[in-house]
Design a protein around this nucleic acid. Structure first.
Lengths: 188, 188
DNA sequence: AAGTCTGATGTCAGTGTCTGTCATCACCGT
DNA sequence: ACGGTGATGACAGACACTGACATCAGACTT
């Protein structure tokens, strides 16, 4: 492990976060990120497949939490109840991380390229959710639809969570979103 | 208009579609597309902001149809009924275009970059749908959630529509998706 | 008909992302 | 000491995209 300067990867992540925040994503070059981390451009691309990916290292863990939560949900739970369990698990994951979430979200919101990357990460989560439901015996197209819905609830709750004037917890916002959605779709 | 070779834009679109289909998106250079259209690389970038955008010229029209349909829905219609009206209008738009849809979808599915671009177009549609609902007096977060749900139904129905062995019409698949979603969310 | 204007296109130079390839060099075990 | 190993550096190159300026066919004016 520690033969060379340790933590190259996280140094690159921190340097990128700082520079993207200071002067914007498009205005930052990979060479600058690498220099701040004491490395070269070539090494940056050994750790991250492209300039955007450096902001999305946490996506894998989020997906793991989602899949695990769906797997351990009560056997009797229907699709929507599984979504509830998953959202609860995700809520726990994000506790105490609102400031980091805000900073990251501000950077992403400011760049069309980064918004694209974020969307494909969310789509991957939706696909993982759908797969987890199929593994529980839920058929298509319900599994796919429910996966999309789960991610939609997360996405909108997260946006509200990091909004400046909001004090509620993410878990509550997600639960609220789920309830509102159920009201809208079952009513009228 | 016709002072020079007319239809440069559509010639570029056709050349891109053909080349992306023949050898793949990543393996095609902009210079090749321009050459096949009898133009230069620089001119390509005058018509399209980047190499991906050449496949998404129809997104604007789709959004217009969506917004119009939401605007003319009966005043008494609730959010979900408005979604139904919008999906019907979109269904009409895609009639007689399944082959083109298949070709385009195959190209997009084969490239991560193109999938990203497609997702941001869909997210824009979701935002337009949410705005249209707010204009009808629907409050947040219901407006945002309903916009996401509408797009999710469209996305999944479209995937099924272009799947090889499917013979049903897009409108039916979307209606079916909407019904399944309502069943899932109101049940249990 | 000559002159001028306009807007699409071409040409060229440059920056930045990302990749392939080979060299280097610290540390490991023997 | 000595070779192996894996992270890193150095370098060249392809390609996406941009800014600046030149060109040139047709439209418009007189």
């Amino acid at each position: 492990m520690g033969r060379w300067q340790p933590e190259s990867r996280s140094r690159l992540e921190q340097a990128a976060l700082a520079l993207y925040g200071e002067r914007g994503f498009e205005e930052t070059t990979v060479a600058e990120i690498a220099a701040r981390a004491g490395l070269t451009e070539r090494t940056f691309f050994r750790y991250f497949s492209d300039k955007r990916e450096v902001l999305f290292g946490g996506a894998g863990m989020l997906q793991q939490v989602l899949v695990d939560a769906a797997a351990v949900a009560p056997a009797t739970a229907g699709p929507i109840e599984v979504v509830g369990c998953v959202l609860d698990a995700i809520g726990v994951l994000f506790e105490e991380r609102r400031d980091f979430g805000r900073q990251r979200q501000a950077i992403i919101a400011a760049s069309a390229d980064l918004r694209e990357r974020e969307l494909i990460k969310l789509a991957t989560l939706a696909a993982a959710m759908a797969d987890a439901l199929r593994r529980r015996g839920v058929a298509d197209p319900v599994a796919g639809l429910t996966g999309e819905v789960a991610v939609a609830i997360f996405k909108i709750a997260f946006e509200r969570w990091v909004a400046d004037d909001n004090t509620q917890e993410l878990s509550l916002l997600m639960r609220e979103g789920l309830a509102e959605l159920r009201a809208v779709t079952s009513g009228d």
